[in-house]
Amino acid sequence: MYRIAVVDDLPEERDRLSDYLRRFAAERKLTLTVDCFEGGERFLEAYDNNYEIVLLDIEMQGIDGMATARRLRERDESVCLLFVTYLANFALEGYSVHALDFLVKPVSYENFSMKMERALVAADRARKKEIIVSTPEGDRRIRIDEIYYVEVMNHTLIYHTKAGVISVRGPIRDCEERLTPYDFARCNKSYLVNLNYVTEIRRSEIRVGGDLLPVGSTRRQSFMQQLTEFMGDIVL
């Protein structure tokens, strides 16, 4: 289920994008909801972290797309943003508001679907998911996006998270199976790392959420490969 906002001052453009979205949803067998807005102000008024993807026209009456994007970013850093424009704009400006890409008008369906595909990947990455782990004090919910890394020590899994350290008994294999779909990768035999928090790479170490972790020589290549692909998929 994806919620998508289309912001454009021209009704025919809104209709075109809505049609594309319906066709895209049918082809991919996805459920989408689409809300259309005829201006940046209207959209910002209605916005309450309730969309995964926003298609934003740049050349609009009233406040333009770029200004809308800047104000949107003050409130939500993670929503996936795709600009629609007449001019292909390699913009620094686009980078400054963490836009995913530009759709150049007249937008062809092929172009649209290719970029939507990417947007879905980015949107999936921004979703906030939780896992439940059983600790001696009872079950605890951990937000996956808040886990820096998982350390295994004598059959104990230690979750290093924003909210602190949580220790659970269990094998790393189970935990790996659960977390790999959410961009976790093993950097050596006892650490499962959230790629989102890798900030530094050294010869045989990486920095994750402030801590330095060793990288196994046999795992280095595949770990770097996963990190490279992850970085290419997200919106920096």
């Binding site: 980078y95 995913l100 062809s108 172009n111 530094e200 919106v235 920096l236």
Partner: peptide, 15 residues
């Protein structure tokens, strides 16, 4: 209609 190229370059941490 399929002649589409897109690129992106960005920095996170020190890479």
């Amino acid at each position: 209609e399929n002649r589409i190229i897109s690129f992106r370059a960005g920095v996170r941490g020190d890479f």
